[in-house]
Structure formats: C-alpha cells, structure tokens
C-alpha cells in the first residue's frame, strides 16, 4: 500500500515543527564561510568542502540552506554503491553533494567549492582502462 495518501493532521496550530521555530540560526553563518571559500577558489584555485553532517543543523536549517543557495545549471548523478547527486547551486562553483547508500539512505552530505567536483573527473587510471576497452572494440571491428 502507499502511504502517499496519509493525511493526518497532528498539529492543531498553523506552524510546522520545522519552520521558523526549528531554525537553529547556524545556517546563515555558513554563507559567510562559503563566500570565503569561493574567494580562495578564485585566488588560489583551491577547492574545499564543508561536511554538513558535522554541523549542528536541523532539517529545517538544511532546507533553508538549500533553498537559499538555489539551483544552478548542472546536476550530475553518480551511480555507484548507491546514488550520489552533485548539483551546482545558483552560485557557480558551489556544489551541493549528497551521497546515498545502496538502500537509498543519505550517508553523507557536503557543500563542495570547486570548479568541478573531484568525484566527477575521470581518473587517468580509469581513462587508461577505457582506452584499452576502446582499442579492444576497434580490434573487434577489424
């Protein structure tokens, strides 16, 4: 059965538990930190990342942060050991990274500041394997 249609009203009041009253106030500070990281990226080309699980953020904080940063042009999905999504935010260079495990649970969450997230780049060793595969395909043709 699907639970989609559960429409149980538990709250008498208007506000949801995770709206304004659930914001810890820790999220806005992160924007400053991000700005600093972006400056560093431009100046020294140094990518950085913030581990969102390591910060005392409520789900409401995360919602706020995600909504505030907005959506960018690119999003990448990695299918490996569970799904991972790497989505650029409205601030180019700032990426919202979510790793899921095989059963679909979120296992880690980062904000990465990079021109391209590390994970997206193909590794030379893997490219080498890819080349070998290509050559074998060509060999098969002939």
């Amino acid at each position: 059965m699907s639970l989609e249609d559960i429409r149980v009203v538990v709250d008498a009041g208007e506000s949801s538990p995770y709206q304004a009253d659930a914001l810890s106030g820790n999220a806005p500070v992160l924007l400053r930190e991000l700005a600093e990281h972006v400056r560093q990226l431009m100046a020294a080309g140094e990518p950085t990342a913030i581990d969102l699980n390591a910060l005392p953020l409520t789900p409401a904080d995360l919602d706020w942060l995600k909504a505030t940063l907005g959506e960018g042009e690119i999003s990448v999905t990695l299918h490996s050991d569970g799904e991972s999504t790497l989505a650029e935010t409205a601030c180019p260079g700032v990426w919202w990274v979510t790793h899921h495990n095989e059963s679909g649970h979120v296992v880690s969450r980062f904000i990465e500041v990079a021109f391209v997230p590390e994970l997206v780049k193909a590794h030379p060793e893997d490219v080498k394997t890819g080349l070998e595969y290509l050559e074998s395909l060509i060999f098969d043709l002939s």
Binding site: L3, V9, S16, P17, Y18, P59, D63
Partner: peptide, 23 residues
C-alpha cells in the same frame, strides 16, 4: 508518531519528520 501532513516543509523533505516514525 510524527506524521504531519499539514507540514509543507516535512513533505518537501520527503516525509522526514521529528522522529523515525514518520512517512
């Protein structure tokens, strides 16, 4: 049991709410 269908935010997060017994 924290199933708050009135909560737009909870729905936006896919039904994850205060406790583990949510959507």
């Amino acid at each position: 049991i924290s199933v708050h269908s009135s909560s737009g935010a909870a729905k936006a997060r896919g039904g994850q709410d205060g406790t583990a017994v949510n959507m």
